[in-house]
Structure formats: structure tokens, C-alpha cells
């Protein structure tokens, strides 16, 4: 069984109010010096068979078809 991770992030130019809300809270918790927070999504996809290039390619296809919207998001695929 291959476990393949897909990290999905909003493109850098797109406003991320969730990340901003988190960043605003940090100084109140005593965490100084944080310039910014961006919130994303992580998917762990279990694929039958070995963790080879074919498995990664399959998950890449899943990511660009469904998991990420390329209009607003970038994604990265890697084997866990």
C-alpha cells in the first residue's frame, strides 16, 4: 500500500482570511514575530500497490481533477 500526500494551498496572491485570523491571534498567545500564516489542506491518499512513479502519477491526476482547483490553488504530491 502506497501512501501519497497531496498538499493544497491557495495561490500566494489570493487572500486567505482564515490564515489571517490565525495570525491575528498569535500575539495574544505570546507568539511574537510571526509575519503571516497561510492555511491549506493536506490529503493522504492510500493507493494499492507499490509507492512508485505510477502511484504518484495517479494521485497527481486525482489532485488536478478533484482535490485542487487550479484556478485558485497550487498543489504538491509526494510519497509519505
Amino acid at each position: 500500500m502506497a501512501r501519497v500526500v497531496v498538499d493544497v494551498m491557495l495561490k500566494p496572491e489570493i487572500l486567505d482570511p482564515q490564515g489571517q485570523a490565525i495570525a491575528r491571534k498569535l500575539p495574544q498567545l505570546g507568539f511574537e514575530g510571526v509575519a503571516a500564516v497561510r492555511q491549506g489542506k493536506r490529503f493522504e491518499v492510500e493507493v494499492d500497490g507499490p509507492a512508485d512513479e505510477a502511484a504518484v502519477e495517479k494521485v497527481r491526476k486525482i489532485a488536478e481533477t478533484l482535490l485542487a482547483n487550479p484556478v485558485i490553488e497550487n498543489f504538491e504530491v509526494r510519497v509519505l
Binding site: I14, P17, Q18, A21, N69, V71, I72
Partner: peptide
Amino acid sequence: GALLPNAGL
């Protein structure tokens, strides 16, 4: 384009 969560959340 796309529709994202409201800026005010």
C-alpha cells in the same frame, strides 16, 4: 474564476 469563503469568514 472561483468563489471563495467570504472575506469576513
